[in-house]
Nucleic acid binder design. Structure first.
Length: 598
RNA sequence: GCACCUGUAGCUCAACUGGAUAGAGCGCCAGACUACGAAUCUGGAGGUUAGGGGUUCGACUCCCUUCAGGUGCGCCA
């Protein structure tokens, strides 16, 4: 699969991006060269190791040998002997325990990697092979129009954005699609109230507040009187029938809603490529009914059109309803139409649905249906994945709400985050002008909210705690941003710039324990990226960045950068520059903004 | 009722889908500023991975079972 081996030993200046992958390839080559039994099935399984065992470890030898009644240690020795000489020059190789192969990079190899990976473009070039020639739709955020975004919308937006950025960095063509809820029965009541109770001033001031007020007014009026209910229903029928006035109102509601959403997205750095909401698929569901009925997947049941899966323990009983008894479409029909559109129009390799885990049943059923349908109609079957996430809980371990039981609006949540960050920054950086403290607070506050969400496994619920989130201690955005600010400060203090060839060219060999520990952490960025992208779990990247910042702080405390010796100063500034590069690149991939002082 | 998810240090969470002695932060204890930002760093104590059984060279991870909590289940999305 890979070409020639180009490991960064001293004489070769080309250093491959992912060293674990290179070692993996080298072991595979060694296996066939050494005539290992079933060499074609051998999977070396090289991964980063605990530091006390080296930099990388190959776990695969043990299992391969055991399964074939070979002696694991003898097998390992045979493979190690067959590795190219260049590799033995670049790292110390040890066989340990029952049959692990451990690799410890030598200082020169570490330095060669650091020299080669000096810019974000070079990192991207290294990472871009992973998803080359793939097109992925990332379906995230997806709020309903005419309503404000609230905490329930936070995770999808934040996690979805990070995943989109990670995939793009890994070489994929990414289509960010905001699958807006812009079509549904709520528009009857809303239009009814809009025609009677609209407050134009309030609409100009804060349109979503006004739409919410109107919807509630319409809802209450309909509850109170059946006559209003009938009128509201009639408004809905007119809308769906293409009535010009109602359609204009509906369009205005959607336009204004999208503009309001964008104000929130701007604070998170989110920009969608398309926003194809449910209404976009209105005229595309007829084909779904025809095709699924035609191939026998969908059947009539009580007047509705449904899909059963006889082989499935649950879905043999519990159907996927694709057309309601009254003939209306629902989310299953539009979701199927969406899958078809994404496959045909975007030629998507697959689609990722960044949606609350409580909808997992729906997606399992939907994907099963789509895959059968595509297979039966001779279409290539797209890869569909529900990228699920847990609930944000309050301190009481119940879903997070305001004291009065309302959903917390995102704009209020972000305002509080910035306010708390401002207090924190003001308490520490008294000499900064207020405008700068405000700007810093915006980055720290919003970044803290994003990072708190991203830094833990998305599948589990988490407790929303301001004090932990905005804190400077532990695995938080502020800790990472502080490390970045401190590195910038070093360069300012020494009147130097990152990637200055005159400085870095003079760098002498890495030597102290802290220098080596930091360098060994830096070269493992590709593995963190790999894991995060492979599992679509950004928290692996967060954990790595946090550990990197920790190694940097330890290095910073142990070894002074601003020394007179040009060789020592050069190599330490090089370490600072690469740490800065990877911290900034990593945080940007997560969707955070960074700063130069705080 | 059926199905899925979760249970790891006092607290909040990791553990790269089966790898080596289960790791961090907070809190607690003891240390480090005449040094580039101490918003930091160094060290220590703290565990029968909810309980029990099984699979194998090896289990927090896979299988069975008990317990505790959560979520979903035909016309909302």
């Amino acid at each position: 699969m890979r070409g020639t081996l180009a490991f960064p030993f001293p004489r070769v200046m080309h250093a491959s991006f992912n060293l674990a992958a290179e070692l993996d390839a080298a072991l595979m080559a060694a296996a066939s060269a050494a005539g290992l039994v079933d060499a074609a099935e051998f999977a070396p399984d090289v991964r980063p190791a605990d530091a006390r065992h080296g930099d990388y470890q190959a776990n695969g030898v043990l299992g391969h040998a055991k399964a074939r009644k070979l002696n694991p240690r003898a097998t390992a020795e045979k493979l190690v002997a067959a590795l190219p000489a260049g590799l033995h020059d670049a790292c110390a190789i040890m066989i340990a325990g029952p049959g692990f192969v451990n690799f410890t990079l030598k200082p020169a190899a570490l330095l060669a990697w650091l020299r080669a990976h000096d810019t974000e473009d070079h990192l991207r070039a290294g990472a871009a092979s992973a998803k080359h020639n793939q097109t992925w739709i990332v379906d995230y955020s997806s709020p309903n129009t005419a309503k404000q975004m609230h905490v329930g919308h936070l995770r999808s937006a934040v996690i979805g954005e990070a995943i989109a950025r990670l995939l793009a960095f890994s070489g994929a063509r990414v289509v960010r699609d905001n699958h807006i809820g812009d079509w549904g029965t709520q528009f009857g009541k809303l239009i009814w109230a809009y025609k009677r109770h609209l407050d134009a001033g309030a609409l100009a001031q804060d349109p979503l507040e006004e739409f919410e007020r109107l919807y509630k007014a319409g809802h209450h009026a309909a509850e109170a009187g059946p006559a209003v209910m009938d009128e509201a229903r009639a408004e809905l029928v007119k809308l769906q029938g293409g009535d010009a006035e109602n359609l204009a109102i509906w369009r205005k509601i959607n336009d204004v809603s999208l503009a309001a959403f964008q104000q929130i997205y701007d604070r998170f750095g989110i920009r969608f490529d398309v926003a194809l909401g449910e209404s976009f698929y209105n005229d595309k569901v007829g084909q779904i009914y025809r095709e699924l009925s035609g191939c026998g997947l969908a059947v009539e049941s009580d007047g509705a059109l449904v899909v059963f899966h006889p082989e499935h323990p649950r879905f043999k009983q519990q159907p996927l309803m694709i057309r309601k008894r009254d003939g209306a479409a629902n989310y299953a029909s539009t979701d199927l139409a969406t899958i078809l559109y994404r496959a045909e129009h975007f030629h998507a390799t697959g689609a990722l649905y960044v949606v609350d885990k409580r909808q997992s049943d729906h997606f399992e059923q939907l994907f099963l249906t789509a895959q059968k349908w595509f297979a039966q109609s001779g279409r290539p079957v797209p890869q569909l994945q529900h990228v699920d996430f847990g609930t944000i809980l309050g301190e009481d371990n119940r879903p997070l709400k305001t004291r009065s039981g309302e959903n917390i609006k995102l704009k209020d949540l972000l305002a509080e985050a910035e306010e708390r960050a401002f207090a924190l920054v003001s308490g520490r950086s008294l000499d900064f002008p207020e405008a700068e403290r405000r700007a810093i607070a915006a980055i720290v506050g919003v970044g803290s909210v994003q990072y708190a969400d991203l830094s833990q496994n998305r599948s589990s619920d988490y407790v929303f705690a301001w004090d932990k989130m905005i804190s400077l201690e532990g695995n938080t955005a502020a800790y990472l941003l502080y490390a970045i600010a401190r590195i910038h400060s070093i360069f300012r203090k020494l009147a130097a710039r990152p990637n200055d060839l005159a400085i870095e060219g003079a760098a002498s060999a890495l030597e102290t324990p802290a220098e080596l520990a930091l360098a060994r952490k830096l070269v493992k960025f590709p593995n963190a990226l790999d894991t995060a992208v492979g599992q679509l779990r950004p928290h692996f990247l967060c954990l790595y960045l946090y550990e990197l910042a920790g190694e940097f702080s330890a290095f910073y405390n142990a070894d002074k950068v601003g020394v007179d010796d040009a060789g020592i100063r050069g190599r330490r500034l090089l370490l600072c520059a690469r740490t800065l590069l990877i911290l900034e690149t990593g945080l940007r991939l997560l969707g955070l903004r960074t700063l130069t002082r705080m």
